[in-house]
């Protein structure tokens, strides 16, 4: 479903140049859920942004569903690939109500029966009808993230890029959202590439994961190995250690 080979992503130039991703390669099968973990600032979000075309400077190869991605992404791409951003505050337009956000997204994807679909989407993510006409500032952090997930689901994508989808959520909503994502994957055969710093969440959701440090993928491992706390790379080992100490 997703193939990344030798991906480099950089920002800025001269002394401010940041090589955010260096020679990263990974492959995610159709229907698989793949985790991306690692140090803060190591380039996890940048990989997702490069896939969706939000990082202008990159080299290497990104293939989604057999198609090589170029500089631009067309509408068909955004129908099949959607991203849920790390920051639910920045990703929702402050002056658009929940209803507007979802209706417009549905409209952009060329879908009909908008009224019914908005109600269904809100229901799917565990927000009742009373949230429909609220604005982002009238929602708690977790409620905003659910709106962001509803928006990503609107076009019925096949590959979902999830950037810390539950780090702004409390554990009960996290359980609801993770169950929802589990069900959606089973029902619709979705593929997930999921960034999280929460190893138990990755263990619960994914089959495999990649560990990143300083722009590089230092290890790709099976979740079974994660559960046994077996990592080969020293950084991956220290990450596992720190998570049990906590």
């Amino acid at each position: 479903m997703l193939d990344i080979t030798d991906l480099n992503v950089w920002f800025g130039q001269g002394r401010d140049r940041v090589d955010a991703v260096k020679a990263a390669s990974l492959a995610v099968e159709q229907g698989e859920s793949f985790g991306l973990v690692g140090e803060s600032g190591s380039g996890k979000s940048t990989i997702l942004r490069a896939i969706t075309g939000l990082a202008p400077d990159w080299s290497g190869r990104i293939t989604v569903d057999g198609t090589d991605l170029g500089r631009r992404r067309d509408r068909a791409f955004y129908k099949s690939v959607q991203m849920v951003f790390q920051d639910p505050y920045a990703s929702l337009h402050p002056r658009h109500s929940v209803d507007q956000v979802l209706s417009e997204t549905l409209h952009l994807h060329g879908l009909g029966e908008i009224d019914r679909r908005v109600a269904k989407l809100l229901d799917d993510v565990g927000l009742g009808p009373r949230f429909r006409f609220r604005y982002p500032h009238q929602l708690s952090g977790g409620q905003r993230q659910r709106v962001a997930i509803a928006r990503a689901l609107a076009g019925e994508p096949r590959l979902l890029l999830l950037d810390e989808p539950t780090s702004a959520l409390d554990v009960s909503v996290q359980a609801e959202i993770l169950n929802l994502l589990t069900d959606l994957r089973a029902e619709r055969g979705l593929t997930y590439l999921m960034v999280s710093h929460d190893l138990p969440v990755v263990g619960h959701m994914c089959e495999r994961l990649a560990v990143m440090k300083d722009g590089e993928i230092v290890e790709v491992m099976e979740v079974a190995a994660l559960r046994r706390m077996e990592a080969r790379h020293p950084y991956a080992q220290s990450l596992l250690q720190a998570s049990v100490a906590g």
Partner: peptide, 17 residues
């Protein structure tokens, strides 16, 4: 709340809600 946490040492198909 405590029971809805995923755990590495206790995998399960669905989380408690």
């Amino acid at each position: 709340l405590l029971n809805s946490l995923p755990r590495l040492d206790q995998p399960r198909a669905r989380l408690e809600v």
